[in-house]
């Protein structure tokens, strides 16, 4: 999967879980500051991402995923 494909997959998840406009999702965006995803919604995003991309994202890793780009890199490295 390319980074763009992972980003658009995350955009679908963010729209469903947290009502984020997919057009706003880009690698430089912060989940909390730019996309208004709160800490519990972030958990839902992570759970959905595990399923969608077939990766494992442990609890202690979630806090390191500050931006969409962080998540894309983590998923890219795992898959």
């Amino acid at each position: 999967m390319t980074r763009d494909e992972i980003t658009s997959g995350l955009a679908e998840i963010l729209e469903e879980v947290a009502g984020v406009n997919p057009d706003d999702v880009a690698e430089g965006k912060s989940f909390t500051d730019d996309l208004d995803v709160d800490s519990l919604s972030m958990v839902e995003v992570v759970v959905a991402a595990e399923e969608k991309f077939g990766v494992k994202i442990p609890d202690n890793e979630v806090q390191n995923l500050k931006t969409v780009g962080d998540a894309v890199s983590y998923i890219e490295a795992q898959s």
């Binding site: 972030m42 958990v43 839902e44 759970v47 806090q63």
Partner: peptide, 12 residues
């Protein structure tokens, strides 16, 4: 408590 870990466990 570790809110995120509990939330994840509880909802999954």
């Amino acid at each position: 408590q570790e809110g995120q870990a509990v939330f994840r466990w509880a909802t999954t």
